[in-house]
């Protein structure tokens, strides 16, 4: 039970990631691939966030920061901010990739009038 409670978060992130992975390589529709890509990326973000959490700690913002009470801050009181920072960057990367991917989708659709991989390959072979 200890093992399950301690690890289920990772398991679910793995399942999510595999869903995304499957959509990326198994689905034929390009939009579906894109959704898969996003799920894949968010699952990684989930993993990172999980690494940063600490039992019994609060969100990483110093309370009463501006009131000049400089109590000694102990590390165990706050969550680990580093994974959060990294994941902010990762989210931005995700949305950027997503934007470019949509642009590509539009271009593809403009050329082939379809978003199905098999049909595109068939059209291209002609």
């Amino acid at each position: 039970m200890e093992q399950v409670i301690g690890k289920y978060n990772y398991w679910i992130y793995i399942i999510l990631m595999m869903i995304g992975f499957y959509a990326m390589i198994g689905k034929k529709n390009l939009v579906k691939k894109l959704i898969g890509m996003n799920i894949f990326q968010t699952s990684i973000i989930l993993f990172f966030i999980s690494t940063g959490s600490k039992k019994g700690a609060t969100i990483p913002i110093v309370s009463n920061g501006h009131e000049g009470i400089h109590r000694a801050i102990e590390a165990f009181q706050y969550m680990n901010p580093l994974p959060h920072v990294l994941m902010l960057t990762a989210i931005v990367v995700m949305v950027s990739t997503f934007g470019v991917a949509l642009a590509l989708l539009l271009m593809i659709y403009r050329r082939y009038q379809t978003l199905d991989e098999d049909e595109i390959l068939r059209l291209r072979r002609k």
């Binding site: 990772y10 690494t51 110093v62 580093l82």
Partner: peptide, 27 residues
């Protein structure tokens, strides 16, 4: 995953090595 530190473990290496400085010294 079997070798990973448990979720939310305050003594996992991630919470002990680099991040304490960020928390303690930010102000």
């Amino acid at each position: 995953t079997t070798d990973m530190p448990n979720w939310g473990d305050p003594n996992s290496p991630a919470s002990l090595h680099v991040s304490p400085r960020y928390i303690e010294k930010t102000m």
